[in-house]
Simulated scan of single mutants.
Amino acid sequence: MENKNRQEKKAKVQEIKEKFEKAQGIVLANYHGLNVEEDTELRKKLREAGMEYKVYKNTLTTLAAKEVGFGDIEPFLEGPVSIAISYDDATAPARVLNDFAKDHKKLELKAGIIEKQIYDSEKLQVIASIPSRDVLIAKFLGSIKAPISKFACVLDAISKSKESEQ
């Protein structure tokens, strides 16, 4: 029986390790004090944003983190810790959890791993304020498009004035 329990733990550590290796963004949060409705709402928001939200035993998470090279997160793995994982958008877990925490003071961001770099809660809040990649690209393209559009309008006005002169 003990051997089976050990195998289950090894399998769980392997699962966490694989998630950490594939993840672009990971955020650890203290969820203690959230009621069932709040937790369900948070899970729904994360799922809609394409993220996973898990609670693992801290000891198993620590073992997996060390195997992947994230051993520095061990001090943040105390007490009730939930993990939000994004495989696409590195800053999405920080944004979604931070936005949720504004209305639900019991949720506390502890630390995060963004593109293999570990950040504490203060730095995570700064990262959470950065718009998503898609928003940044849209803003960039909009800033490029505006001068081109104005230039096209000027050229059109010049051609119309030349036509009216003839």
Rank of each mutant, 00 (worst) to 15 (best):
E48W: 00
A84L: 05
E41L: 14
L124R: 09
D120M: 12
L77E: 03
T40N: 05
S82F: 03
I118N: 04
S159D: 14
E67M: 02
S164G: 07
L46W: 06
L155N: 03
V135E: 14
R95K: 10
A111W: 06
K106P: 01
S82Q: 09
K106V: 10
E52C: 04
A146W: 10
P75W: 05
I118F: 05
V68T: 12
M51K: 08
K106C: 05
D72W: 03
K105W: 03
E108V: 13
Q7E: 15
I16Y: 07
R6W: 08
L97H: 03
L63C: 06
K110Y: 01
Y87I: 06
I130A: 03
Q14N: 07
K139D: 15
T40D: 06
C153K: 14
R6G: 08
A138F: 01
T40Q: 12
D120R: 05
E41A: 15
D103N: 15
D156Y: 12
E48G: 10
F70P: 02
E38M: 11
N35A: 02
A65M: 05
P93K: 01
K150E: 15
L63Y: 01
H32C: 13
S132I: 03
P80D: 12
D39G: 11
Y87W: 06
D88C: 06
T59N: 13
S132A: 13
E122S: 14
K57E: 01
I130Q: 08
A138L: 09
L77W: 09
G142I: 09
K106E: 14
E78R: 14
L109I: 00
K145D: 07
A157Y: 08
K19I: 01
